[in-house]
């Protein structure tokens, strides 16, 4: 029964939402809005609670075992501090919460993200070699694309940006389309399997 009930709820709401998507009747619209605006948000709030509990448990366990104790303590400190700041002074405008967000989180995240450029440069030097025919084609395409995205107008022959545009609009887009169609079909089949109860791993690992 512990598995049957969630499966029934999943089937029921899967069918309801699927049907509501195509209905234009005012009552259908009202139900749709009610589910989207209210119920979905309540579920989201519970997922946040689960996430926070899981985060705290994971870090407390790691700290008790002595793994990366300082970093994990700092993370936990952040998880405790930010809600306190938000509860006392709010999260808008010139609040301390926003100060921490703008002066700690934004620079930290931007810095970590920008480190990618260094790894890309290193990988380009150490690994981006024309080892085979396809690798050489990839290398040339990347070369032309990078050149076309730089401000080198006047220094480059006109055909280089033209070739880069052709690569983007033909082979690249064909591959993207194939991937998108594959994702779409995959999502459709997975959703149907979940709604119909064929796929049950989300209930706890059983195939």
């Amino acid at each position: 029964m512990s598995r049957r009930l969630p499966q029934i709820v999943c089937l029921l709401f899967g069918l309801i939402m699927f049907t509501l998507y195509f209905l234009d009747h005012p009552t259908a619209k009202q139900i749709n809005t009610l589910i989207l605006v209210d119920y979905w948000q309540i579920i989201f709030a519970f997922t946040l609670v689960v996430g926070v509990i899981s985060f705290i448990r994971n870090h407390v366990t790691a700290i008790s075992r002595g793994n990366d104790r300082l970093y994990r303590l700092l993370s936990l400190f952040g998880v405790v501090l930010m809600p306190i700041l938000a509860l006392i002074w709010g999260i808008k405008g010139d609040s301390p919460f926003m100060w921490v967000f703008e002066n700690v989180q934004v620079p930290l995240q931007s810095t970590v993200f920008s480190l990618l450029a260094f790894f890309v440069a290193s990988a380009a030097f150490r690994g981006f070699h024309a080892r085979s025919g396809p690798a050489a084609v990839l290398l040339i395409a990347a070369f032309l694309t990078i050149l076309s995205r730089s401000s080198l107008e006047g220094l480059l022959p006109d055909f280089i940006p033209d070739i880069a545009v052709w690569v983007r609009n033909n082979p690249s887009m064909a591959a993207r389309r194939a991937i998108l169609i594959g994702i779409g079909l995959g999502s459709l089949t997975t959703s149907l399997r979940v709604i119909l109860g064929i796929e049950r791993t989300w209930l706890g690992g059983e195939k």
Partner: peptide
């Protein structure tokens, strides 16, 4: 400049 630097690295690496 950084794009050109990466291109030079790719050439040097090859």
């Amino acid at each position: 400049a950084s794009h050109l630097y990466v291109l030079i690295l790719v050439i040097a690496g090859n």
